[in-house]
């Protein structure tokens, strides 16, 4: 800093203030300083426009309708239909595939539960692959809502687990624990969301309105189960691999910059079908059903097996259970 100059200018200003503050630009519209300032401001604005020019690509990708779209819960049935049509058209344009976006509501009286038999799971990862395909995940990073931990027998401490094992399974001294969204009764992610873009539905499934999420990732920090995924870039999926059976709150192709998570394949399960990961499991370790039905398989497991939930001490009350034979 050149101190003297700064002082000079302040003094100049002060000299003019003896009879009240001055209006330098108004009073001297033709002064060189004012002209230079105006030029500087214009140059600055131009430079700013140039600097943020990559933003001009946004209007190409975000239509006015999308920008103004209201929260899912505020949309009328008619508005929803128009939104789904718009999304179907966008998917056709961007991914070259005709898809159908549906929005099955929760089945009244049903509360979904999932259980995994850890004595059966051998960590082969077929569930992750099925999830990737069913849910239109980014192929570039082989995204999936499931992570399978290889754990050391004799310890439930995940500190002794790893997801990056790459050998034939199962290993003698290991057991395998898939982790995905636990669909908590008391979900910390829903509490965290500042804009109510994620909420728990009546059947216990925690969903995300991908068109309302602002992408702050607070839910991802809040989730104790590493269940949430962020779309760091637009998902790449070849047209012939796009699953055309899509749900608005589930497996439709998610936009860049938003959060997503396991939704128990609600576009399938709310139609009565089993989740994709369960059908894919070659070991038959997975079990899905209605917790409100006393005769359901899942309730038989809860009553007859020794069942635990992950991180029970956090009070999240998962609807996802683990058991051993």
């Amino acid at each position: 800093m050149t101190v003297d100059n700064a002082d000079d200018s302040s003094r100049d200003e002060r000299a003019g203030t003896s009879s009240g503050p001055t209006l330098p630009i108004l009073n001297q519209p033709s002064s060189r300083r004012t002209a230079l300032k105006a030029a500087g401001a214009a140059l600055g604005l131009a430079a700013f426009g140039k600097a943020v020019s990559p933003l001009w690509s946004i209007p190409e990708n975000v239509s006015v309708d999308e920008f103004l779209q209201q929260h899912y819960k505020e949309l009328t049935d008619d508005e929803k239909r128009r939104v789904f049509e718009r999304l179907e058209a966008e998917t056709q344009r961007q991914y070259g595939k005709d898809v159908t976006i549906s929005d099955p509501p929760p089945i009244p009286g049903v509360r979904f539960g999932y259980a995994i038999n850890l004595s059966k799971c051998n960590g082969n990862g077929a569930c992750m692959e099925a999830c990737n395909q069913e849910n239109n995940h980014h192929r570039g990073v082989d995204q999936s809502y499931i992570r399978v931990l290889e754990m050391t027998k004799g310890s439930m401490d995940m500190e002794h687990g790893t997801t990056s094992y790459d050998h034939s399974v199962p290993q003698e001294d290991k057991f395998y624990m898939p982790v995905q969204c636990q669909q908590c009764e008391n979900p910390p992610c829903v509490t965290a969301c500042p804009v109510e873009a994620t909420w728990r539905e009546d059947d216990g499934i925690v969903v995300v309105d991908y068109n309302w999420c602002i992408g702050c990732r607070y839910c991802e920090a809040a989730c104790p189960y590493h269940a949430r995924r962020f779309n760091w870039e637009p998902p790449e999926i070849p047209a012939d691999e796009v699953n055309p059976d899509q749900g608005y709150l589930s497996n439709r192709i998610r936009p860049q910059g938003t959060m997503e998570k396991c939704h128990f394949c609600l576009h399938r399960t709310r139609e009565g079908r089993l989740p994709a990961c369960l059908e894919a499991c070659p070991t038959g370790a997975r079990l899905f059903g209605d917790l409100n039905d006393p005769d359901s398989d899942i309730n038989w497991v809860l009553q007859n097996k020794r069942v635990f939930v992950l991180k029970e001490e956090l009070g999240t009350q998962p609807n996802f259970f683990y058991f051993f034979d």
Binding site: V110, N117, G272, R273, L274, E279, D290, W300
Partner: peptide, 15 residues
């Protein structure tokens, strides 16, 4: 009781 063995189809047999 569904706790052993793989399956496909419907969890909800009314559907």
């Amino acid at each position: 009781h569904g706790a052993h063995g793989g399956m496909t189809g419907y969890w909800d047999l009314s559907r």
